[in-house]
Design a protein around this nucleic acid. Structure first.
Length: 656
DNA sequence: AGTCGAGTTCTTTTT
DNA sequence: GAACTCGACT
């Protein structure tokens, strides 16, 4: 009977090693899979899904939670290839994505409208800034007080760790102890303000999700019954809030958590690998599976990696030693260069050598701790005309012109969203946040009195006469665009809406504002292309806000074969035949700030993640002098210095 | 009161 | 390069 539903016959025993096979075929029930780097974690998860299907579990009864959008996409793609079951049939995505989806349907139970908007970190910060200015006008002017950014960090950390702002201040920001009353107050006002505007920040997507489940027994039960199996990837990087969501959803003891405590690199966002060690207590009957065979790297690289993580003393709970199966080649290189320019030249030269040996550019990745470490390298690459793809700080959807345009759509979709209103209004001459807020209030009052929509009220004389003279013409144009968008909100597709907005006032505006308006219009057109993938406005807008990993690398899209530059955080889960780790010096990696704050162990785990991305060859390098800021002499990173000398090979460039 | 432009400083990691 | 500050201008 169960063979009827089995889409493709898979011989699990033949295609997996014993460790993987045991985890994949674990009985349905709570399970913890401790999978070391390069041990085939994704493969295990993919086959687990296939195995569940073979046991008669339906795709929509499986929930797959990942940490990034990319991971979710890749995983489901592999499942589709393996089983033939299309990816969309599963519930899969980031915690934020799933939270958004559930809240869209059932958020009304906790006071959310269906068309709530999502604000990104920057918008959340400026909203908080406004709240603070309202509650305490002098606060941000005082240099001794934290900036809105820092207050935002404190609040966010508290929310993600399910603790109070007061506790976070006490433990992580003792020098702000005198603000221990104020910050919770800001927090409270901030929550109110968001709710009033029907906007959610990233943390809300998790927090409200949990709240919904906790306060509504029937909804919680429905999901608990629905999901026969919940798979969680990168479990070591979940925070307490996420762990609670999983525990609530998986109360029927059906969670399989997959992770590696040695790769926990998100504690700054509240991740807590204790979630792993206490998992068996919270899920009685948990079976534990260890996968330690590494298929990725050469023994030399693994030996080095094992040594790196061995120095981490905080983390003894589930010690793993990765076992290599590959044959050796050569030890990792550690190269000292004179400065960042020479470091760049070294990489270019070595890349050329690798190409001669038969590697392709796409086999090679350059990894670093922070984006700005790669600045010189970028310049050198451009100069030499070597194609590269960088997943850089500024992401496609975060570019100003994209956000400007989207703010029109967002306001049309949710007219309570003041953040968006202020954004597009501020583009007008002589209009800033204050004037915009005033105009909106005026229009709202008017709409209420005369029982018309806000969009109609915006064109009323009483409002327009408060618009600065120079901005009047543009104002009317915007209002018409908004009205068109609003009228079509229920009926027109997102693609059409984007088109409407581009052809309206905004299209003219950027042509006059930017000299490179051509490429900006191109961006907006690709946004339109992206919109065509969605039928519903709210879905499209949410995706925009949650898909930050979509990058703005239009210059290289043409050539597939190019060098990859990324931060280690973004390289998590990826592998490359050849890896260059740059900036491997104390104060760069580990970062100065991390040393000062005593977070070296997290940096070490991050270093470990970087090292274990490499399959065949690993090059670590550092500049002896940095000219970023005041010139400074750098020493080799302690992560390398503390290693036995015979685990790597030192090279020296330039004069001593 | 609020906007604008010039000049200055400092860059972590992500949903 | 962006985010901030400061002083001038409307």
């Amino acid at each position: 009977m169960d063979t009827l539903l089995q889409p493709k016959a898979i011989n699990f025993k033949d295609e997996l090693n014993e460790e993987q096979y045991n985890a994949v075929t674990a009985p349905i029930g709570p399970a913890l899979v401790l999978a070391g780097a390069g041990s085939g974690k994704t493969r295990t998860l993919t086959y687990r899904v296939a195995w569940l299907l073979s046991q008669g579990v339906q795709p929509w009864e499986i929930l797959l939670l990942t940490f990034t959008n990319k991971a979710a996409r890749e995983m489901l793609e592999r499942v589709e290839n393996l089983t033939g079951v299309p990816a969309y049939k599963f519930w899969g995505g980031t915690f934020h994505h799933i939270g958004q989806k559930v809240l869209r349907f059932q958020g009304d139970r906790i006071g959310l409208e269906r068309n709530f908007n999502i604000v990104d970190a920057g918008e959340a910060e400026s909203l908080l800034g406004e709240v603070i200015r309202d509650a305490d006008p002098g606060f941000l002017k005082d240099k001794n007080n934290p900036k809105a950014r820092v207050v935002s960090d404190i609040i966010s950390y508290a929310r993600n760790t399910c603790s109070s702002c007061a506790e976070v201040v006490k433990e992580k920001y003792p020098y702000y102890n005198h603000l221990i009353e104020k910050i919770p107050l800001f927090h409270e006002k901030y929550q109110e303000r968001k709710r009033k505007q029907q906007v959610l920040d990233y943390d809300d997507l998790l927090e409200c999700f949990l709240q919904l489940l906790e306060e509504n027994e029937d909804i919680a039960q429905a999901y608990q019954e629905r999901f026969k199996s919940i798979l969680v990837d990168e479990y070591q990087d979940t925070n307490l809030l996420q762990a609670k969501i999983i525990d609530t959803l998986g109360v029927k003891h059906r969670v399989m958590a997959v992770g590696d405590d040695a790769q926990c690199i998100y504690t700054w966002r509240g991740a807590d690998f204790e979630n792993i060690s206490t998992f068996p207590e919270r899920h009685p009957g948990t079976l534990i599976y260890k996968i330690e065979t590494n298929y990725r790297s050469t023994p030399e690289i693994l030996n080095f990696a094992n040594g790196v993580i061995d120095q981490d003393v905080t983390n003894e709970s589930y010690k793993k030693i990765l076992k290599a199966v590959r044959r050796g080649k050569q030890k990792p290189y550690f190269v000292a260069t004179v400065d960042t320019r020479q470091q760049a030249q070294f990489i270019l030269k070595r890349v050329q050598g690798l190409l001669d040996e038969g590697y392709r550019l796409s086999d090679i990745a350059v990894l670093y701790r922070a984006h700005f470490h790669a600045m010189d390298l970028q310049m050198e690459l451009s100069k030499q005309g070597l194609p590269y793809q960088i997943t850089s700080g500024v992401r496609f959807f975060e570019q100003a012109h994209v956000k400007d345009l989207v703010s029109l759509l967002r306001f049309a979709s949710n007219p309570l969203d003041e953040v968006s209103f202020i954004r597009f209004s501020s583009m007008l001459p002589k209009v800033g946040a204050r004037t915009a807020a005033k105009l909106l209030k005026l229009a709202r009052d008017l709409a209420k009195d005369e029982k018309v929509s806000v969009f109609k009220a915006l064109e009323n004389d009483k409002v327009t006469k408060k618009v600065p003279e120079v901005a009047k013409e543009a104002w009317i144009d915007i209002v018409y665009t908004l009205q068109d968008l609003y009228d079509g909100m229920g009926s027109i597709a997102p693609e059409k809406a984007v088109e409407l907005a581009i052809n309206g006032w905004y299209g003219d505006y950027i042509r006059n504002l930017y000299t490179n308006w051509r490429s900006r219009v191109d961006d907006l057109e690709s946004l339109q292309g992206f919109a065509s993938r969605y039928d519903e406005m709210t879905e499209f807008l949410s995706q925009l806000m949650l898909l930050s990993s979509e990058t703005s690398d239009r210059s290289v899209e043409l050539s597939e074969d190019c060098l990859r530059l990324t931060t280690i955080h973004q390289a998590k889960g990826l592998e490359f035949p050849v890896v260059f780790l740059i900036g491997v010096a104390d104060n760069l990696f580990p970062l100065k700030r991390a040393i000062e704050e005593g977070n070296v162990d997290e940096e070490r785990r991050l270093f470990y993640v970087g090292v274990t991305r490499a399959k065949d060859e690993l090059y670590m390098s550092y500049p002896r002098v940095t000219t970023q800021g005041p010139p400074e002499l750098l020493k080799p990173s302690r992560f390398v210095a503390e290693m036995p000398k015979d685990t790597y090979e030192s090279l020296y460039m330039g004069e001593r």
